[in-house]
């Protein structure tokens, strides 16, 4: 099973595969992650088939294909649940989410997900700073990573805990061109996000 948060990362390594089942996301307000969040879509993004990411609360979008850019939503993860579907016997486990997590815990949980489920080999933190997300005090986490395909990518996750549940929006894209190209859309969507 793949971790929801990094399936897009993993998908980015499968160059040459044919994407099927993607649907165009309409512009305007849309519900994501099983309706746990609402955001204002800028249009021109394509939603990956539901159920592709292991966790039902996960949803992925891409504009130019997941190898190049992807936005991922994860909503209403309850205390005690991991952001990846995993079994007790798994040798490596993505840390379980707890509502009492510090910013350090939240960011390292995401980093571990990238490394464990996304197969990321190099992960470097660029910045961690406070941000308002979903009307809550949240964390903005910026980083670069290199996967097995040896392509450098950039990522930004905005993270908030609301009502004891975890909400994440992540942008992953190639460091050359696509991250900067997608960032304005991502920021607009994140700023418009609300819990349903």
């Amino acid at each position: 099973m793949r971790a929801a948060i990094v399936l897009i990362v993993a998908a980015a390594t499968l160059s040459g595969c044919v994407a099927t089942g993607y649907t165009l996301v309409p512009s305007g307000q849309v519900a994501v992650s099983q309706g746990s969040m609402k955001i204002r879509s800028a249009g021109a993004w394509n939603k990956a088939p539901q159920g592709q990411f292991g966790l039902p609360q996960a949803e992925g979008w891409t504009r130019n294909g997941p190898v190049l850019d992807a936005i991922y939503f994860l909503g209403a993860i309850p205390d005690g649940q991991a952001i990846a579907k995993q079994r007790p016997e798994d040798e490596r486990k993505v840390p379980v989410f707890h509502a009492t997590m510090t910013p350090q815990d939240l960011t390292s949980m995401i980093e571990s997900a990238y490394r464990i489920r996304g197969g990321v080999k190099i992960f470097e933190t660029i910045g961690v700073k406070p941000v308002t997300f979903l009307g809550q005090q949240g964390v903005q986490f910026d980083y670069t990573f290199v996967n097995e395909d040896s392509v450098k990518r950039r990522g930004r996750s905005v993270i908030a805990v609301a009502g004891g549940k975890l909400y994440v929006m992540s942008l992953n894209a190639t460091a050359i061109h696509y991250f900067d190209a997608a960032l304005p859309d991502f920021q607009t969507m994140a700023a418009s996000a609300s819990t349903s």
Binding site: T102, P103, Q104, T125, I126, G127, V128, K129, P130, V139
Partner: peptide, 10 residues
Amino acid sequence: AADAEMVRFT
């Protein structure tokens, strides 16, 4: 540090 701003906020 990359997370200095977050720590100052804390």
